[in-house]
Each structure stands twice: as C-alpha cells, then as structure tokens.
C-alpha cells in the first residue's frame, strides 16, 4: 500500500507536469478551433524548440530560459510564414481540410524529424543546467526547481493567451472566426490575417512548451510522437475551444498519470489514459468544458 507521502509526491509532480501538457494543448486547440487544422507537427515544433535550447546551452552556454526569448518570437514569425506558404493555400483549395491538414502537417513532421536527426544525431540527450536535479522541500515532498519553472511558464503562457482572447480586439476577432467564419468575414474581419496570426501564436506556445519540456525530460528526434499523444488527450479531454478546459485537462491528466502510477504498474497507466479519452470521446466529444461547434 502506498504511503500518504508517496501520494503527495505524485500529486505535486503530477500537477507541475500537467501544466506543461496544458500549454502544448492550448496552442494545438487554437489551431484546430480557428482554422479547422489538425497540426500533427505541433509537438515537432516543440521538439525543435527543445533542440534550439539544447544547442544554445551547449555551444553558447546560454540558459534555456533565455532561449525562450529567442525561440518564441522566431516561432511566431515562422508560424506566419508557414501559414502564408502552406496552410492558407491549402485551406482555400482542400475540400476535406481536416484530412488534408493532417497529411500536410504529418509530412512536415517527418521532414523536421529527419532534419533534426541529421543535425543532432538520433541519440537521446539531456539538458543539464545548474539547477537540474535540485529541489526544495515542502515537509518531505520534494519539488524540483525545473518543474516549478516549467509550471510557471505554462501558467503565464496560458493566462496570456486567455487574456488575449478575452480582452483584446484581435483576440475577439480570433474568437469570431472560431465561432463562425462567414459571419466574421461579413463583419469585416480579415480571415487570412487572423488565421496567420493564430498559427503564429500557436507555434509560439509550442516554443514555450518546448523550453519547459527540455528542462524536464530527456529527448531524441522522435520524442515528438509521444508528446503528440498527450496533446490529443489534453485537447479532447478539455474540449476544443476552451482554454480553461484545456488547462484543467492538462492538470488532471498530469495528476491521473502520476497518481495511478503509484497504484498500478507503470505500463498500464497509459491504458487508463486511453480509457478516459475513449470514454470522453464517446460520451462528450466536445470535452469537459468545450462547447458545441457551430455548423
């Protein structure tokens, strides 16, 4: 029987990890909601940010947290370019955008994965900074600094996105396109511009998530597939279109993973997650806090 200490430890680390899942999910969900684009390369971009942080740390001795300020704006611009070159033209032509976007972004993921493999070799890597492995204690429960930093970045990013959507004029336009594209266009919203900015923001969050991930996990060029699964879990669980829902789902999934790992063999933990995901999909395809999509 696990001790209460073990459960508290699982609670703490689960919550911290959950924040990082949430931030991955927020950007992915934004793309899905606004553009009806399923971006299978979302986690590949996060992985690219991981490698950028790693490379800057190894060769330039720059702290990964500083790399955040390089890769976030870089990815934002990158997102706008990718939208203009690939996603936008695709959205105009494809009849089945969901399927088409999955094929296109998967192609992008293959391309990036192999480019990373070519640049950084397939070996697993770990990013070591001065605070890696250090922790502070609340009673006997250890809280690693890296997890706290990751969690803080996640919280700040999701709050920023939430405020952007709720409080700014552009954010309102994004929500308008999300709910009814034709209606928004009729009100003078430039769909193309809003979509490209959304895609940029989505990739910028992937960059932020990547920096968090680099602090917590070891990684190799194919790590992104595993992360993609967590993205699906979080977005579907929380509901496409609900930032608080995705945040909540991220935290819950972090908790469920870590707490069930205390009670059952590690390998079966994923089964629990898949079970939850299947149940949510079948009973409530719109997720915990999601709203029905307008047709």
């Amino acid at each position: 029987m696990p001790t209460s200490f073990e459960i508290f430890q699982a609670l703490a680390s689960g919550l911290l990890l959950g924040g990082v899942y949430a931030i991955l999910g927020v950007g992915f969900g934004l793309c899905w909601g606004v553009m009806k684009v399923i971006n299978l390369s979302h986690s590949t971009f996060a992985l690219l940010a991981v490698y950028i942080a790693y490379w800057m740390n190894v060769s330039l001795k720059i702290d990964p947290l500083v790399s955040l300020f390089v890769s976030t704006p870089l990815f934002f611009v990158c997102g706008i370019v990718i939208y203009r070159l690939l996603i936008g033209p695709l959205a105009k032509r494809a009849e089945e955008l969901v399927a088409a976007s999955m094929v296109l972004t998967f192609g992008l993921a293959i391309l990036m994965e192999n480019a990373m493999q070519w640049a950084w070799k397939p070996d697993p890597r770990v990013l070591n900074v001065s605070y890696t492995g250090k922790a502070f204690f609340i009673s006997r429960v250890s809280i690693p600094y890296t997890a706290v930093i990751g969690f803080a970045i996640a919280l700040v990013t999701t709050s920023c996105i939430y405020l952007f959507l709720k409080k700014t004029y552009l954010g309102m336009a994004v929500r308008a396109v999300w709910q009814n594209k034709e209606g928004a266009a009729l009100c003078g919203v430039n769909i193309d511009r809003v979509s490209s900015i959304t895609f940029g923001i989505s990739l910028a969050t992937a960059a932020a998530a990547g920096v968090c991930l680099s602090l917590i996990f070891s990684f190799n060029p194919s790590s992104h597939l595993g992360w993609l699964i967590y993205i699906f879990l979080v977005v579907i669980f929380g509901g496409v279109g609900s930032i608080p829902g995705v945040l909540l789902a991220g935290l819950l999934i972090g908790l469920i993973t870590n707490i069930s790992a205390v009670f059952i063999p590690n390998a079966w933990v994923n089964m629990i997650l898949f079970g939850i995901l299947a149940t949510v999909l079948l009973l409530r395809p719109t997720g915990l806090l999601g709203q029905r999509e307008a047709r």
Binding site: L90, L104, L108, I110, E113, N114
Partner: peptide, 18 residues
C-alpha cells in the same frame, strides 16, 4: 541515405496535398 530521403519524402506529402 535514409535521413535525407525521409526529408524529401516529407516534402513530397506537402507538395502533393497542396
């Protein structure tokens, strides 16, 4: 070799779907 060929492979999907 497999890496470059996979990069081209990925590019192919993008071009075809576009």
């Amino acid at each position: 070799g497999s890496e470059i060929s996979h990069i081209i492979y990925g590019l192919l999907f993008i071009l075809v779907i576009l």
